[in-house]
Design a protein around this nucleic acid. Sequence first.
DNA 1: AATGTAATGTTATACTATTGCATAACTGCG
DNA 2: CGCAGTTATGCAATAGTATAACATTACATT
Lengths: 141, 141
Amino acid sequence: MACRQSGLQMTPLREAAVSELWRAERPLTAYELLARLSEIAGRNLGPPTVYRLLDTLCQHGIARRIESLNAYVACHRREHDHECIFLLCQECGGATEIEDNGLERLLRKQAETAGFEMTRRVVEVSGVCAPCRTAVDSDGA
Amino acid sequence: MACRQSGLQMTPLREAAVSELWRAERPLTAYELLARLSEIAGRNLGPPTVYRLLDTLCQHGIARRIESLNAYVACHRREHDHECIFLLCQECGGATEIEDNGLERLLRKQAETAGFEMTRRVVEVSGVCAPCRTAVDSDGA
DNA sequence: AATGTAATGTTATACTATTGCATAACTGCG
DNA sequence: CGCAGTTATGCAATAGTATAACATTACATT
Ligand SMILES: [Zn+2]
Ligand SMILES: [Zn+2]
Ligand SMILES: [Zn+2]
Ligand SMILES: [Zn+2]
């Protein structure tokens, strides 16, 4: 992995957490991650441990919380100082991150119009991803 | 109130729930609403009751869930068949709904580019609202 | 070794939400 | 009216998500 820019020291636990989030092909809940890390560690970790890991990784932009799923993913982009836009598939549970392309500006402008100072934003789109659409189409459903 | 278009029958409980959401000057959690409705009813309602009320109201577009707060607000717009954009103030806890102005189209277009069929979206902006900004400014902080 | 800091462990608890089944209220009909 | 079908509500238990508070460990500096 290559995410060590920002002065975050990579401990074995953090290493394992990032690795599991990367391996997963969909967002993991905190307790799912907890179970996997416990298995890896060979002992039962507590909820605070995994929530602290997730907090730390999220603060460094390495992991992201999906608000509408109560779940967490690894951010797949190089620069970790951005806000993500996620496409969340209702069929396969997958989360895809897409490029911003002006949405940030548009949103910031509209917030400004309301006199609102924006510090964070959540943009999550639910629906059906391309692979799942073709799968459904060929069902003849 | 004037939200009876869509074939939702207004029972006393639903009436009270809508009323409390309107009166509140910020989003209410399910359990906050539960407490208020219990007080109004003069007996203790159970969690399922309030979650069912909220489900129903959300399905009819009368109430909305704020994903990043685990809380609920009454939608303040006439047409209840839209997706909302919320500005959430970190100072006062207030939630303001703003007009869409092309965001929906932009987002749908970008989803389409990814071959994604969009059925729902969440857009929530956190920051500081206009009144709270002026309040902070005049603090000399 | 003594100190300080960051990280992790542990226990308990708070908060959010749903399942499953029972009962009540309302509707339409014979 | 009596009844069936439907919608709404009541209720108990439990599942799922997250944090508080405090103890301990690991590691770097002196
Ligand atoms: Zn990202
Ligand atoms: Zn899919
Ligand atoms: Zn709205
Ligand atoms: Zn405010």
